[in-house]
Amino acid sequence: MGITIDMSEELLSPDPAPTSAGRRGLNRRVLLATLGLGAGAAVVGTAAPASAATTWSNPTLGRITAGYKSPSYPTHLGTDVANSQGTAIWAASSGTVVGVRTNSYPGDTRTGLLPGRTGNGVLIEHAGGYRTYYGHLHSVNVSVGQSVTAGQRIAGMGTTGNSTGNHLHFEVHLNQVTTNPYTFLQGRGITLGSTAPAAGGWPTLKQGSTGARVTVVQYLLTSRGYSTVADGDFGAATTASAKRFQSAKGLAADGIVGPVSWPELVQDVGSGSSGDKAKAAQTGLNIHGAGLLVDGDFGGVSVTAAKRFQSAQGLVADGLIGPITWAALV
């Protein structure tokens, strides 16, 4: 991935690295914190007490490469989280989009959405005087005035503006004063970059669910060795297969395939892949109108369809269905 540097502001040493327990949180649990938001004076680097229940969520997944300002580097006003181009960016809390910039490009040094910032960006206003800023985006999926919920996909990670690599520059503001995003979320039970987000880009399927996404799950379970009829009906047999799979992975064996189980269930599918995992990918692409024959042979036609889908989603169009593409696909 390489070292990612946000050139629009000075950098400092990264925030404390997530603990191994925090990293395991992505595959073990979804942590959501409900805190109230209230008035009160803002103090730089701290978060004000809260009132009126609000859910906060991790805005993306990746590796922290730069942290919030310090006495030595006072102008870096957020935390940088690096990952691949197109990695999903989610709203950190419910609110209203109050600013969007989409006309930037890599190397662009013009002032962006906020003074001193460059690149494509999104600014969201939340209850209690809070705002969150998401910078250096590759693609944007929201517009000004749109209401969003915690965990809703709002953009794709990029390197637009004065940046040297794909990353999210994430800021938290209270009454127009910035605060440390890492410690702000940490105080709400969230490890920035590691904790599974509120929605995570993954649907939640369980007994009684029907449709093509259920068929995808059934093919993936079979490809993992848990034979399941791919009929699009999440019934007792599919639930039993899901429970066996979850138990083998050390997950809560509840038979519900959601943001915790999906990342463990999906497999990379690319040119030359075959069998049930290829059928799962072809079924997923057909959800988006690819019109593929679900034959388990991921050849040239399927790869082309995958590239078209990735390009439309602002992802790297390499034809490989990996975790990032899977999350967008289903």
Rank of each mutant, 00 (worst) to 15 (best):
I3V: 14
V172Q: 08
S104Q: 08
H288F: 12
T118A: 09
T228I: 11
I154W: 06
G200C: 01
A66H: 04
V81F: 00
T149R: 13
S72F: 07
L12G: 14
V217T: 10
L205K: 03
Q246G: 09
E171S: 10
G78H: 04
G119D: 03
L285G: 03
Q282P: 02
V177K: 14
T109A: 08
A278N: 03
L113V: 02
L185D: 00
L192W: 00
D15V: 01
T228W: 03
Y130G: 01
A290D: 09
V122E: 04
L251G: 05
A92V: 11
R24W: 05
G314S: 06
G145S: 13
V98I: 15
G235L: 04
M7W: 11
L32K: 08
L192R: 00
A42G: 07
V43T: 14
A48Y: 04
G78W: 09
A327E: 10
G300I: 08
L205F: 05
I5F: 12
G128Q: 03
V97Q: 10
A237W: 05
I89A: 01
G165L: 09
L123E: 05
L12P: 05
V144M: 12
G225W: 06
A150H: 08
F245M: 09
D318C: 11
G145R: 14
A312Y: 03
A237M: 08
I324S: 02
T215M: 10
G258V: 04
G112N: 04
T164K: 14
S273R: 03
G2I: 11
N166H: 13
G235C: 09
S51M: 11
G95D: 06
P74C: 09
A155G: 01
N162L: 12
G2L: 13
Q246W: 04
T222W: 04
A21M: 06
A212S: 14
T178L: 05
T109S: 07
V260N: 01
S143R: 14
